[in-house]
Design a protein around this nucleic acid. Structure first.
Lengths: 72, 72
DNA sequence: ACTTAATGTCAAATATATATTACTTAAAGT
DNA sequence: ACTTTAAGTAATATATATTTGACATTAAGT
């Protein structure tokens, strides 16, 4: 796995800190950090919660590196 | 969580048995069964592998019950 | 230079996804 | 009725996601 820059970007767009996002979705800051870092294999439920919190979809953040095109 | 009928349907469309799908994605038949049954919270990597094998996307199988509309 | 907030990272503990083995049921074919 | 294949389900074991606690680093503000 590689870094999840899309997630980092979406979070930035929502102006949330890793800690804020973590609290919103009910996990630890370390977990969010690890997911963004990319060496994690999170649970689908967590992915969904993250997406909903960031107002994006699963495909936006976790589907294959169709390297870049979110509409912003 | 509720039954993942979309996955069951996509698998049917690909004419694969639970066991075949399981082998293709490298897990156990019980795991596939449990996911379709709905009382499981699989890993994103597994979800992605399943989607690729069934030629659909994450949103198709695991994004919210926008209850029904895949093009078939 | 000093703070502070955000992030990166690590080791050990806990929760939970998945494997293994095995038994049951449903449907279809003969 | 019998056989076979696919599916449903359960108990215990193992692998791994996530937590907890703690410390290091980076960037920005003053």
């Amino acid at each position: 796995m590689s870094k999840n820059l899309k997630m980092k970007s979406a979070r930035a767009l929502s102006d949330m800190t890793q800690d804020e996002l973590a609290k919103r979705v009910g996990v630890t800051r370390q977990t969010i950090n690890a997911i963004e870092k990319g060496d994690y294999n999170p649970t689908i439920k967590l992915c969904i919660d993250i997406c909903k919190t960031l107002n994006v979809t699963l495909n936006d953040l976790f589907w294959e590196d169709d390297t870049n095109e979110q509409p912003l």
